[in-house]
Design a protein around this nucleic acid. Structure first.
Lengths: 145, 145
DNA sequence: ATTTTTGTCTACTGAATTAATAGACATTGA
DNA sequence: TCAATGTCTATTAATTCAGTAGACAAAAAT
């Protein structure tokens, strides 16, 4: 499961993505729109700001905005930033590799082999889906109503 | 990430799968072979027994064995039994559906849409991979050494 | 019968993680 | 100078994870 933190992060990015090119948006507005606890959202936005995904401005008229085009923010990046590894086993993670504690011989592990495939299948989608893609998808879904 | 519990469960099933058709195997032997804490493994095996995946026999000469052919035990089944949902969002789970707390309109959620695809990609592999498949894969991997 | 060998079941526990909340601080704009 | 924002660190309650403990039950060996 994704943590709520990551889910909130993605939701915030979508809101900011729809606002791309306009005025910065305040934390409170995002929190209310997405029903996210404000103080919790503060932390999340800050983390993304420190990672260079968001831009922020203090004071009256301040707030947050995307620091990159919505096309250039991919789900895999957000998930790794907030939750860490995407892979289901540490020994299979591309960015957070760790040997499994109890593992005897990694090279001959059929579980590892299978979960490498699972990771690749997940990444094929998560690397390929941007915030812009999600926004567009929502437009399509709204039309189908 | 998979819990260690699920990883241990799969490892135990592989050992028992290699032993399929022979004498029951004792918990202690499995624990030592896979370097799993014995008392923890007890619980795991018991859970799989109560779910009908394993057969057990008490007393001298007793132990555990598979209650189904290794071909008929799929990773998705084991994962759901021990860890619960496979999907990354509750609102996308086939077997453990729950609405996301903060969700306003599920039908128009682009995140949900994307993570439905992720779930399907994962299940395509996890439904299709059996304990027998993993055992065979390990034979192949061992030859390549 | 009794003892030994196995699995069964329930309860407990310490550590880590999750999902927040709190509050003092820093900067910008009016 | 003050009001409106974001920044940063600490704290916390609840839950989950990973494991441990021990009394019990049943089957086999003696």
């Amino acid at each position: 499961m994704l943590s709520k933190k990551t889910k909130y992060a993605i939701k915030a990015l979508i809101v900011l993505g729809r606002n791309y090119g306009k005025e910065p948006m305040q934390i409170l507005r995002i929190a209310e729109a997405e029903r996210i606890p404000k103080k919790f959202l503060e932390q999340i936005l800050l983390e993304m700001r420190n990672a260079g995904i968001l831009y922020s401005k203090k004071g009256a008229g301040g707030g947050y905005s995307l620091n990159k085009a919505p096309e250039d923010i991919r789900l895999s990046q957000v998930m790794r930033l907030i939750d860490g590894p995407i892979a289901l086993l540490p020994c299979v993670s591309l960015n957070f590799y760790r040997k499994c504690d109890e593992c005897v011989e990694e090279g001959v592990c059929g579980i590892r082999d299978t979960f490498t495939d699972v990771r690749d299948a997940m990444l094929q989608i998560l690397n390929d889906t941007s915030i812009a893609d999600i926004i567009n998808k929502e437009k399509t879904l709204a039309l189908d109503d």
